[in-house]
Amino acid sequence: MTGTEHTAGSSRRATGLATLDRRWIYLALAAAIALSIVARIRFPDTPSPLVQAAYDRVETLPPGASIVMALDYSPSSRPELEPMAFAIARHAMLRGHRLILLSTWDTGNAMIARLCTEVLRREFPERREGEAWVALGYKSGNEMLINAIRQDFDSMYASDMEGRSCADLAVLAGVESLADCTLIVSLSSGTPGLKEWVLFAGDVTGVPVVGGSTGVGTPEFLPYFPRQIRGLLGGLKGAAEYEAALELGHPDFHQRTMAATDGMGPQAVAHSLIVLFIVLGNVGLLLQRRQRRGT
């Protein structure tokens, strides 16, 4: 091989690394995620201070405390937020709290229905609907809905999702407005969401707010921690950390599903692959630069 051929070969390799066809990236990512799902790769997780604060807030409430949980998300962000909802609902049921489920999103009813079917009715049959928990569902109005129920639940929710009168439900005894609740949990992937629950409910009533958001949305809420948001679950990792905290705190309780912990394996593999591609791209770029300097 002559010097010119060698240089041409190196140049092609450098260009190849720096300008990889995106279809190779897609293929590699799909294969890596599929393999890690099939292989059920799992990593142990430990709760970060943000998640531990949220866990401790639920854990230290006296039994029977009323928690409002707003499921403000849609199927697109369900994989990240639903594991949070499941883990917090389990935790609340284990601790004997009362759970009030509602949503400011029109897709919320379906999300609430899944939580009721998959967790509350199946795993806690002894904690009965109407006594230990209630699904109030979605109402229009966005932040004005929060503003209205801050003063009076009855003004917006005369009945629950099943059509039962709220006045007859034991779970709502003594709970006339958001101000009567002990904790607000907002799991959101947009607007209205966690920010609106802080501004229109938590800050005004003094009821502590704990929240969960998608991975990309979490940085937006960090300025509110720890005064206005008392605990924060960020993305799938936040949910996995909450599952880990629940496992540590209640070792006798078996979590039937741990979707976040299961999902962290494929996510870790995908992140690593992306890092690998970024490194490869930069190696190609540096090689190209060196060759340009050499010629």
Partner: peptide, 10 residues
């Protein structure tokens, strides 16, 4: 993944 590969360059 594709955008990160293209954007994150030194």
């Amino acid at each position: 993944a594709s955008a990160s590969y293209r954007a994150f360059r030194v």
